[in-house]
Amino acid sequence: MFTTDLKRGSLELLILSVLDAGPRHGYEIGKELERRSGGRLELSVSTLYSLLYRMEDRGRIKGRWVEKKGERRRCYYTLTPAGTRELASQTHEWRAFAAMVDEVLGAGHA
């Protein structure tokens, strides 16, 4: 669908934006990415979780075990303050970049 290079740079931003709405566990994050992308963004579990762990190591999100009666124990991820800042700055950067790309492409085809 998209080249891996293109995805790699933006996945972190997408996950940050999913978590902006509130804590979610890994399965929900995957589902939400799929839903928002209209099924065009489907991640393998290993890609999803290794990315989550790296983001946690960088201090942008935080995972916490939550147990609910009668359910499996789940790890819920929350944005940290650093993550919130990162989301803002990356969103800004991405928008500016996308606008620039649009402009360039638009000019070419005009």
């Binding site: 566990h25 890994g26 399965y27 995957g30 579990v45 290993s46 979780y49 790890c75």
Partner: peptide
């Protein structure tokens, strides 16, 4: 953590 999360997901 790792095995548990993958298992839950799958």
């Amino acid at each position: 953590r790792i095995v548990g999360e993958l298992a839950a997901h799958l």
